[in-house]
Design a protein around this nucleic acid. Sequence first.
RNA 1: GGAGAGUUGGCUGAGUGGUCGAAAGCGCCUCCCUGCUAAGGAGGUAUAUGGGUUUACUGUAUCGAGGGUUCGAAUCCCUCACUCUCCGCCA
Length: 414
Amino acid sequence: MIDTNFIKDNPKLVFDKLRLRNYNFNLDLFEATEANRKKYQTKTEDLQASRNVLSKEYGMLKKEGKDDPALNKKIESIKADLDKCSSELNDIQLTLKELLLDVPNLPDDSVPRGENEENNVKIREYGEPTILKGKDHLEITSMIDTDAANLLAGSRFAVLHGDIAKLQRALIAFMLDKASEHGYTEHYLPMVANTESLTSTGQLPKFSEDLFQLTEDYYLIPTAEVPLTNLYRDKIIDIDKFPLKLTAHTSCFRSEAGSYGKDTKGLIRQHQFEKVELVQICHPEKSFEALENLTSHAETILQELNLPYQVVELCTGDLGFSAAKTYDLEVWIPSQETYREISSCSNCTDFQARRAKIRFKEGGASKLAHTLNGSALAAGRALIAVIENNFDQKSTIHIPEALQEYTKFDFIEV
RNA sequence: GGAGAGUUGGCUGAGUGGUCGAAAGCGCCUCCCUGCUAAGGAGGUAUAUGGGUUUACUGUAUCGAGGGUUCGAAUCCCUCACUCUCCGCCA
């Protein structure tokens, strides 16, 4: 959520910034509703104040055993007005909240302007992408079994057999260990989240169709960002603890509504995939520094796996809902002769913190922290990348050295 | 699944109808004392939102959530959520 006071003080700026990310902010509606809110809030509070004063007065009389029917009548009439006023206020506040929960974060000034992903800016690249188009991961090995997954669940799921299953497990363990080395505390988390958690991080109320909903209040998490960030919901954090660095491996679940026909083959786009997530919660002045830091942590993993990748800065039009600034890490996928997103590292500034009430104290005042998150990495896609980039085009997948202590083997015969 | 007990400020925890935004302790901040340290003393210290000469000061709301009773609710009633204990069952 954006700060309402900031919107009130800088309406044009807010409108323009949101425009940059293709969001049409209904400024008139906001201002009208906000003015109305203030009017009814003031009125309600005035009525409450007089009720409180008169009630006290009346109580004193009663205590002395006296009565004052006129006073009583006056209180009654104030209460009637108050009822009307406060229920009106309630409706207005609800409308206002709905309106604000729908508004995405403001892009940071440093973010390149652009309509869509075509305007994203490549920042740097690492490694040499293979030139020859290779076999894709499904062609390489039958140990990735979509038929079996189809039998068990449906499309966009996968069964991994044997050494490929081990390889994914090795990747996850490797990534978690790397995160620990970088100072992130490992967590084991529920993979179910409630409405409040998902609202705090920005998935709800707007993107419910992207989620698997279990029951009225339970959803499968689309990313560990949700539980990790929500660990500190409604908390006032001791400033000495900054930056908080958290990590977890979880399964992630996405309905992929609206992506019919996109990446239908293979492991690229799944309803369920494994991911190691990094989250940082830090002082507002440190968050952009932290973003560079967090991104580099994710990059280290690609580097140690010897995977060619590029870092792309998302333009304003391609930013996610909660993000003020985002770097995508894209890994080379030989079979597609292209780079594909394997991590997305974002500074959400105070956007999630405001929704989640994640605060700290400084100079006697309580302030909102900044939250950041990024994948390190998406294990399913990392698995594809490792397989395709290390296949000898005959029958052998070589295991990157960094993983061998985890897999306990150094090649897979397919 | 059965029975019971709970949910109060950064934390622990008192508070059964007005004098309660809430005792006390811990923590934290400021100052004093002590030639370091430890100990001691005085004061301050919830959150959100509004008014204000943006200082002083001040209104309102918030004691798990929502509703109700009442002139007045942390306190009484109802519903819901969550936590804990015991029993049963079970990975």
